[in-house]
C-alpha cells in the first residue's frame, strides 16, 4: 500500500488535479455569487483567483505546475474571442439602429482607455516595459496579450492587468452609474464591456439583459479598436 504522501507526489505532477481544482473552484464561486444575489464583491472571477492563489501560496505550488493543468481552460480564450462574432451577428438588427452612437462611443472610450493609462502611468513614473504591458488592459485577455507581446511587453503581466481591470470595472460600474443617475442600460452596458471586457460583460448580464447585450458588443468592438490604437500609440510615443 502506498502512502498519501506518494499519492500527493504522483497527483501534483499531473495536469489533472489542477484542471479539476480550477473548474470546481469556479463552480463554487459562481454558486456563491448567485446565493449572495450577485453582489459585486463576490465576483466569481475575483473569488476564484483569490482562493486558488491562496492555495498555491499555502501549499507552495509553483505557478508553472498549476498552469500545466489550467492551460486547457486558458487556451479557450482564443476561441472565445472568435465566438463573440455570434452575439454580434444575432443582435445585428438591434445594433444597426444605434450604429452611429456605438461608433462614436467606441472611438472615444477606446482612446480614453489607452490615453489615461499613458498619461497616468507617465505621471506616476511606471517603467517603460510595464507601461507597454499596461496599455491594452481594456481589451479581452487573449487579444491584449497578443498586442503586448508584439510590442515587446510582458504578456503574463498584461494578462494580470487585464484581469485586475476587469474586476475593478465590474466592482465599481453599478454603484458609479447609479450615483451618476444614468438609467440608459444600453449606455451603461456599453461602458462596462468597453472598460472591462468579458468580466464587465458578465457583470452587465447580471444587472440587465440589454446592458449585457451592449457590453458584449463593446467588448467585441474594443478588442478590434484596441488592437489598432495601442500599436500606433506605443510606436509613436514609446518607440516600441
Amino acid at each position: 500500500m502506498r502512502s498519501p504522501v506518494d499519492l500527493w507526489v504522483y497527483l501534483s505532477t499531473s495536469p489533472l488535479i489542477w484542471l479539476t481544482l480550477t473548474l470546481c473552484t469556479w463552480i463554487a464561486a459562481s454558486a456563491l455569487s448567485v446565493r449572495l444575489k450577485r453582489h459585486p464583491l463576490v465576483n466569481p472571477v475575483l473569488t476564484s483567483i483569490v482562493v486558488l492563489s491562496v492555495l498555491m501560496t499555502v501549499f507552495d505550488i509553483p505557478y508553472e505546475k498549476f498552469f500545466a493543468g489550467a492551460q486547457f481552460v486558458h487556451f479557450l480564450l482564443g476561441p472565445a474571442t472568435v465566438a463573440i462574432a455570434v452575439p454580434l451577428y444575432r443582435q445585428w438588427d438591434e445594433v444597426k439602429t444605434v450604429l452611429a452612437p456605438i461608433g462614436v462611443a467606441l472611438l472615444a472610450g477606446s482612446l480614453v482607455a489607452v490615453a489615461s493609462v499613458m498619461i497616468l502611468g507617465w505621471l506616476v513614473g511606471l517603467p517603460r516595459e510595464m507601461l507597454i504591458s499596461f496599455l491594452p488592459k481594456s481589451a479581452t485577455a487573449g487579444v491584449a496579450m497578443a498586442i503586448s507581446s508584439s510590442l515587446g511587453g510582458n504578456p503574463s503581466l498584461t494578462a494580470v492587468l487585464v484581469i485586475l481591470t476587469g474586476i475593478t470595472g465590474a466592482l465599481i460600474v453599478t454603484p458609479m452609474m447609479n450615483r451618476m443617475g444614468i438609467r440608459d442600460y444600453a449606455a451603461r452596458g456599453f461602458a462596462a464591456g468597453l472598460t472591462s471586457h468579458g468580466i464587465g460583460t458578465a457583470r452587465a448580464y447580471e444587472v440587465d439583459a440589454t446592458a449585457g447585450l451592449f457590453a458584449g458588443i463593446a467588448m467585441a468592438l474594443n478588442a478590434i479598436a484596441t488592437s489598432i490604437i495601442v500599436p500606433l500609440v506605443a510606436r509613436l510615443l514609446l518607440g516600441a
Partner: peptide
C-alpha cells in the same frame, strides 16, 4: 463559451502569484 467567459480568465489571473 461566452456564458462561462469569466472562468477563462482564472488561470492567467492566478499568475499574479508568480508576478
Amino acid at each position: 463559451l461566452l456564458a462561462n467567459l469569466g472562468l477563462l480568465f482564472v488561470p492567467a489571473g492566478v499568475g499574479i502569484v508568480s508576478l
